[in-house]
Amino acid sequence: MTKQPSDTRIVRPDYAIIAEWIRPRSRVLDLGCGDGALLHYLAEQRKTTGYGLELDDKYLPQCIRNGINVIQTDLDQGLAEFDDDSFDYVLLSLTLQAMHFPARLLDEMLRVGSRGIVTFPNFGHWRARIQLGLFGTMPISRTLPHQWYDTPNIHLCTLRDFEALCRDRNIDILDRRAVDHIHRASLGLRLWPNLLGEIALYQFTRKVISRH
C-alpha cells in the first residue's frame, strides 16, 4: 500500500498520539503498514499484538525483519479474510486518501475491529487553500509531496469532509487531533484544526443505534 515517505518528523508525532489512544495489550490490525514501524512502536509501547497488511513488495522483508506479522493484501479488495470483531483497533495511517473505496473501507474497519483509527493529510490546511485558492494550482506540501498527475492520493479530504462522511455512515468520532508537521498541538490548532492542521487523526467507533 502506498504510504507517505517515512519522514520521522511527520510520522513519529502521529505514532505517539495513536499509542496514547491504544489500551495496553490490545489486538491491532494495521492497514497499509509500510515497513511495520508503527506496529513495532505499538508493540514496544503498548505490548500490542496483531498483523499488518501491506501490498507493496518492498516493505515485506523490512516488516519481517522488524518482527512484524505482515500479510500481503490489496486493501481495495476488502478485509473479507478477517472475521467480525477480531481486533480491538484497526489502524489506517496516511493511507485513506490512497484507497479506491475509502467509505467502504471505514465500514470494513468497524466490522473487523471495535475501534478505528485513521490519520490523513488535511487538504483543508491553509497552505493547500492558498495554493489552490490564490495561485490556482494543486497543492504540494510536506504531507502531500506528489504532483497531481503522479500521486497515489486519489481521495483527498479535509477534516470537515471526513466528519460529514462519518455522520453519513453512523460512525461515532471518539477523539480528534490535528497536528502540524512537527507535532505542535497549539491553541491555534485546537481552535482551527481544519485550517492549521497538516495531519488529522481520528479515533472512532460504530454508533449504537437504539431500536425503539
Binding site: R27, T49, Y51, D57, L60, C63, I64, I68, N69, V70, I71, Q72, E81, F82, D83, S86
Partner: peptide
C-alpha cells in the same frame, strides 16, 4: 490464503507473501 486465514484466526504469528 486459506492457510493464512486459519493461522490468524488462531492468533498465530504469520507472514504471507504473494510473489509476482
Amino acid at each position: 490464503r486459506e492457510i493464512v486465514r486459519a493461522l490468524h484466526d488462531n492468533d498465530l504469528n504469520v507472514s504471507y507473501a504473494e510473489v509476482e
